[in-house]
Every structure is written in structure tokens, then in C-alpha cells.
Design a protein around this nucleic acid. Structure first.
Lengths: 209, 209
DNA sequence: ATTTATATACCTAACATTAGGTATATGAAA
DNA sequence: TTTCATATACCTAATGTTAGGTATATAAAT
């Protein structure tokens, strides 16, 4: 059984490179290509349905994140494998939140790309091993533990106060605890969610709570 | 024409104080009182409809913010005037966002309370003059100037990066500008929106952009 | 032609967060 | 009963934000 793939990237040169790498595989078939997300959606609407969409994140007209969100909603059987120049945590997390099943950087080699495709095809997640460590942390915490049991009462309470813009010192006074305690809770929240910054926590909370 | 008022506060003593102040006015009629937001909603459901709800922010069972949100949605003709011990910016902004038409602190005097009630009754906003200055800033910017003209291109760009969790230094490198420039833009954003903290900006951006 | 808005850059002090620890007490689960 | 989860508290160094300024250049508006 061959794996059907659509490639989406705004750099034609890169599409060609991927094609030449994958064309040598008996079990992988590139059934179409596109230069932005909208073109992929058009292909899907015309009944050109792949097993995996291999897509760049940043593209004109419609980017990979929007594409992935739409695909996850309307074609939930299709798997999206993100492919990007960038390995910044925020990009990876956004793609995963949009519903991507894996994330590889553009400097991966031939064998790793094959592995990624086959792994995702089997229903597992795949990540380039050169992605920052905190992504793996985030992924494990975020996906293997049910969200509502993730944070303790106290941690949720503190997260809510962080979202409201309270500082550690204000929270300490309000809850009649030491500032050190608040900061310990913060660190535990960071660890559990795999999110290190205050702004990231607000993002998380407004989307998930 | 008398102005009908419901007072909501979990401190009975305070309700009594307000009542004794307002009972001397010919044109103000306290038609009911409540000790939390839920009690107010029950009164409304039973057809006891005031012109103005004078409510505390922090109350057990249902707080003033939740009450105001429900009233704004289901009884949009009623005006909510917030009454609080606290004059923290975040409280005021939350009440205003919930739909309150004014905000007075509990240390106002008799004549100011009258003025507040009459001003709100006429359809204007009212704020205690002892509220922090940045609230007036926030209010003016937020309500009198159309949102889409408020921030310049550059400022919007930087706000978006802040939401994504980028630091000043990261943004400086990415945009090939000095960190000082980024910080200047930040300060201008703070001034224009009347929001001073990073977390507040993320809140604002996710709700308004 | 002068003012205003935008964008840029610099400086410093105060405050806040983040990351790296360690440590103790309590109650619930294995 | 020992381990695990939760909640508490302390310490320090590095990094980042916020608030107070000043200052320059350019383009648009009055």
C-alpha cells in the first residue's frame, strides 16, 4: 500500500528537492503539490485526497497553521506533517495545537524524512530530533496527561491570577503566602505545561480554561 | 420621575449605610437589596426591575463581574454602577469590559454618589475621581478612539510579537532594530491602550485583534 | 512654515520573572 | 510503610520589563 502525499511549500525549489528525495521510495507517492494552503484545500475539494499533507508553516495567502486547522476540522482522517525552516517553540506548539501530527525541520536528511512519514502514517507523533528540548517536554505534558488533572487547585488559582496580571508579590499578599511559594508554584506550572513565559501562560489559559 | 435602584453587597452594614444616604433623596428609590449577584438575578426574574444596579465587585456565590456580564446580555437597558473597596486598575477594567457604566470607590461622599447615579442615569459614564489615572487613560483610549486607528503599523507588529512571547531582545534582532527602540514602542503601546503589563497586552490582543 | 505623528535610539533605576537549586510537612496511594 | 503528590518556604544569579527621561529624522497635516 503506497502512502499518498501532498506537498505544500511556497518555494518551488524546495518542493522539487523533497520530490526527488521521496520519488525513489516505492511506497510513497506524491499525488499533488501546492504553493500555499488555499491550493491544498482546493485539491481536497476536488477529491484529491492524500494520506499525509507535508506542509510548510509560513506561506502566502494561507499559511500552514490555518491549513492545518481547517484540515483537522474538515478532513480529520488526513494527517498533517509540518515542515519548517524554523524550530522556534512557538511555531511548533501552534502547529500541534492546530492539529499537526508531527514537525520536521528542513535540514533533516532523507532517512529521517522517511521515518517521519512512516511514523505519522502509523498514527504516531513525530518530531525532528533537533527541535528544542522544551517542545518534547511540552508535548509529553500536554498530550499524555489529561488537561483537567494537570494543574492542582493551587496552581490553577495562581494561573488565573497571572492571567489577571497580578505579580508574584501581589499574589503572595492576597493569598497570604510567601513570594517564594508563589514562584515555586509558577515553576511547577511552567514544567507541567511546558510553557516558560508569562505571556505564553496567558495564551494557554485564554484558549484552554 | 424617581430612579429605581437595587443595591448588591455582601456586607449588610454597607447596604444600610448607602440606604441611609440615598433615602433622603426624593428622586432615588431603593426598590430592593441583595447580598450577592445571584440574588439580584432572582429579583430581576421576578419582575423587580430597577434603573440602576449598584453592585459590589467581590461577593460570594456570584460576584459583581459575572452579574454585570449577565445583566448586560439579558437586561441591556439596566445600568450597572460598580461600587468597590478596591481601586485597582484590573478590577475597574474588568467591570467596564463586563458592561458597567461607572465605577465608584466605597470612600466617596454623599454628593459624589448622587452625582454618579444621576450621571449614569443620563447615559454617561462615571468614575470616582480618586481612581488611578491610567483608568481614565484606558477608558478614553478604549472608548473614544476607534480601535483600528489606535496603534500604528509598527506598534501592532510589536504587539503581535509580544503575544507570541518574544522578548524585547528577540524582537530587536528579528526586526533589525535597537532594543531601545522596541522598548520605546512598548511604552507607546502601554500609553495608548492604558495597559501597563505584558499579560494585560496578551489579554487585550486575544480579545481585540 | 510650524506642528503633529511616526519611527528611531539611548540611558538608568526599580521591579518582576525565570531557572537553578534545596528543604519540610502532610495526606493519599501502592 | 514507603513512595508520591501537593503545598509550603528559602536562596541566588541571570534575564526581562516597566517607568522616567531625552533626542533626532522624516513625512504628513494645519
Amino acid at each position: 500500500m503506497t502512502i499518498k502525499i501532498i506537498i505544500a511549500d511556497d518555494h518551488q525549489l524546495f518542493i522539487d528537492g523533497i520530490k526527488s528525495i521521496l520519488s525513489k521510495s516505492f511506497d510513497i507517492d506524491i499525488i499533488a503539490e501546492a504553493n500555499n494552503g488555499l491550493e491544498v484545500l482546493k485539491l481536497l475539494k476536488h477529491g484529491i485526497l492524500p494520506d499525509i499533507i507535508l506542509t510548510d508553516i509560513r506561506m502566502p495567502i494561507m499559511d500552514g497553521i490555518s491549513l492545518t486547522k481547517t484540515v483537522s476540522k474538515d478532513y480529520s482522517k488526513l494527517k498533517v506533517l509540518a515542515l519548517s525552516m524554523f524550530d522556534q517553540t512557538i511555531d511548533v506548539i501552534e502547529m500541534l495545537e492546530a492539529g499537526a501530527k508531527g514537525y520536521v525541520t528542513k535540514n533533516i536528511d532523507k532517512s529521517e524524512l522517511h521515518l517521519a512519514i512512516h511514523t505519522v502514517m502509523k498514527g504516531h507523533y513525530f518530531f525532528s530530533k533537533n527541535l528544542p528540548k522544551d517542545i518534547q517536554d511540552w508535548f509529553h505534558k500536554e498530550n499524555l496527561i489529561p488537561n483537567d488533572q494537570l494543574l492542582t487547585k493551587r496552581e490553577t488559582e495562581i494561573l488565573e491570577l497571572i492571567v489577571k496580571g497580578r505579580t508574584s508579590l501581589q499574589m503572595a499578599k492576597h493569598l497570604k503566602l510567601s513570594k517564594y511559594t508563589i514562584d515555586t508554584h509558577r515553576k511547577n506550572i511552567h514544567k507541567k505545561l511546558g510553557i516558560k513565559s508569562n505571556t505564553g501562560l496567558v495564551n494557554y489559559a485564554l484558549k484552554n480554561l
